[in-house]
Nucleic acid binder design. Sequence first.
DNA 1: GATGGAACAGTTGTG
DNA 2: CTGTTCCATC
Length: 900
Amino acid sequence: MVLGSELEMQTGSTPEQSEYRSDSELLKNLNPQQAEAVTAGWGPCLVIAGAGSGKTTVLTRRIAYLISEMNQEAETILAVTFTNKAAQEMKNRIEKIVGWQTARKTVIGTFHSICARLLRYDIEEYTTPEGHKLKSNFVIYDETDSLSLMKGVISRLNLDEKVFVPREMRYAISALKNDGFTAQLYAQEAKSYRESRLSEIFLAYQADLARNNAMDFDDLILTFTQVLKTCPGVRNRHHYRFRHILVDEFQDTNRAQFDLIRMLAEPAEEVLGQDPWTERTLMVVGDVDQSIYSWRKADYKIMLSFQNDFKPARLIKLEENYRSTATILDVANSIISNNSERIDKVLRCNRDKGGKVQCFEAQDEIDEAYYIVEELKRLTARGRTLKDCVLLYRTNAQSRALEEVLVRNHIQYTIVGGTRFYERQEIKDVLGYLKLIYNPADGQSFNRVINVPRRGLGKTTLDRVNQYAIESGISPIQACLEAETIRDIAGKTGKSLKEFGEMVNRWHMLSKSIPVSQLLDTLLKETKYIDKLQEDANSSKDELALGRIENVRELIAVAQEFEKSADEPDLDSFLTRISLVSDLDAVREGEDSVTLMTLHAAKGLEFPVVFLSGLEEGLFPHMRSLDSETAMEEERRLMYVGVTRAEDSLYLTLARKRMILGRGPAGGSGFTSNYTVPSRFLREITPGLLAGYYPPPAGERRQEIEQDDPFVQGGGWGQAPSRGGGYQNNNNYGGGNSRPNNYGGGGNYGGGNSRPTNYGSGGNSRPTNYGSSGNSRPTNYTSSGNSRPTNYGGGGYGSNNSYGGGAQRSGSSQPPAKPRAMRMDPNAQPPAKTQHSKENSAPVSFERLAVGDKVQHAKFGIGTVVQVIGDQDKELYNVEFDEAGRRLLDPRFAKLIKTT
DNA sequence: GATGGAACAGTTGTG
DNA sequence: CTGTTCCATC
Ligand SMILES: Nc1ncnc2c1ncn2[C@@H]1O[C@H](COP(=O)(O)OP(=O)(O)OP(=O)(O)O)[C@@H](O)[C@H]1O
């Protein structure tokens, strides 16, 4: 779906003039079952089908068909997708068929975004079962907000945080909400002591949310459903508007979501003598084998009982896979057939056999990343683009090693998910201001920003203000205005509070008349937020400060972009949108980069080339799924999802050793991690389908050497890869050592096919320390246009102090961040590991620059050095380019020519 | 009330 | 390893 479909290719880009004028055009290329689904008549319809069988394609065309062939108004259509991105894609495609004017009237989005949008209109008519009322300017609390709210609740109830762990309580309540329980309803159910306490917490938590005029994510769906249940007028209005409801990825629907669908699809009261499905449709599509969100209370049984819940429901099965090669499908099927809880289904392959699936066992996670990077280079040299490729992994933490090696090899990448833009401290600060301006009752945001930047208003004052606010039943902002009358507050403090309150009030007024970006400008100026960050940067107090400034600027850019494109560019929709967006890092047009994401995030997508990394017991399948058969089956479905993302080529990789949280799982000394066990999923694959590596039979354990001296281990492994019995196992680590990250030793990553990629330069089998272990990193790593003979780090990444300037992204949104910011900013450079940099610092040959120097750069043009960061020999230059804005560059990579 | 450093805790996935 | 919380000190 990321790639152009046949649909797009046929229509070209004629936005208003549809080329689909006849039903035969819309049905073109569809197989009979697909056509049946697209053209189905009134009533409920369930489409069950395996991966890549065109479910989403069918859903999209169905919408177009409803509009252009069945003469349904666009505004009667409500389509639910799993992600915002999928919604956007669906909108784009429909727009191409029916034109923008029509397409924009459809409602397409995730459950959360749809509910948020509709709730704004209807919420004031509603009183919660607990007796609370919310106003239409409610804000949406993210996990952090709701967790800190929860902490407050637990301490206020005098409960022990050790016994009632806030995180767990949050989680339990989230689960209850997803199962359709309101606090009120659960209060009737709770029996045991713990349940009763949980119920108390639940009630108090909801009361707190209401006092802040806020909802958490789960509330969006639950509350909207409640509104429909309790306000028949509202329900009927929506029921008669949305006569066509479509849901994608229905297997991952939870009870609360299903209730919502039902509320919308069924009338408040049945009209006698009339078929409720006249001119109404409900189409849900899904694949039980791709149900991977049970931890969010999704339940595929909801899909299986669809025909019972919606009586005359028609069932359509799609059985032809158009996406993957036969080999890839065989791999997927051989794995998923190990699940017992499933309904067997047919999935015929529509494509050629394709090549074998490449499997590779690396020494460690860095080695694994290098293998992937080398393959990427090979593939791109043969005409693939980076955009064709995706790197998938089970846990977000795994992206680090991959990023590090990608950066070092100057390969552009885009991370989806992970640490999100909107969760970064500085963004949350600024958004905190916006939320508070929008909804002055928002205590969480108030607490967040009251002392940011420092205003000399600390915890004591904050507590007093909050207490006063609660006692007098007013908002914290109102309390600030009355600060001078609060006892125990000193005159000076009171004045600061009053000033703060007045400032926010003023902005609140202002927000109704000026655009969001101007409001942002104003508040950043008046609070001196950026100035303070700049000071931090200058005094190197906060080495991330520059990146933060850049991120704040990015937020302003987002706001400006929003004002241009949104239907209603007000603060309200800006905040709603931002609270619900998950990944700002959508792949940029025209920018070639490889995508990195978790398996979960990959659901519904497809890529010509897929790398699936970390196939190790405990990681994938994840540790927490090892002792439950149900959980294990879900892991297996996740594996199935991963494999079936691939169109042409699939790579499976694992590492013999892996660092987790800085040490090996049950680690010995320092960097000794225990050896991993290959994932059971590998063994479930029919052997003949894999090339390169096949795991040893179950019982046979890997040879483990318990040694404190890691070098002894290293030598040992070079000679003893005693496994793979019978299958290809040509990985040659001969003479190598297993020190992390040392590729010296002439190891050949050939797998089965002797590719000429040589990682070693004939090194040194037993280095004595990281830094000076004989320059084993050959220069030919930098094949992508950079052939300078710089030593990229001697023996290992541990000693590397170059940051891969070539990985600068060209998009304007790339916040150049300092190396340590990598966690925050996935696109930034990797951490500087300086432990042995002294012995190792490579001779550099670049022109030293100073602040104020004018420089020229091939891509970014002319600029001025505004800052030099880091010690000599490691310095980076922060350059303000006339055209390209501010960039952080490593002179060892980026060619910076001094000009006058 | 701010600050820096020590101690501690987390370790699956997302809207 | 890394982010958060707690505590002593200014
Ligand atoms: N009739 C067809 N002829 C040719 N290609 C098709 C046909 N139907 C679907 N495809 C292609 O097959 C691919 C998979 O389609 P789609 O993403 O809709 O499948 P899906 O069932 O939603 O997959 P998943 O379950 O993995 O989300 C797409 O590239 C789509 O363009």
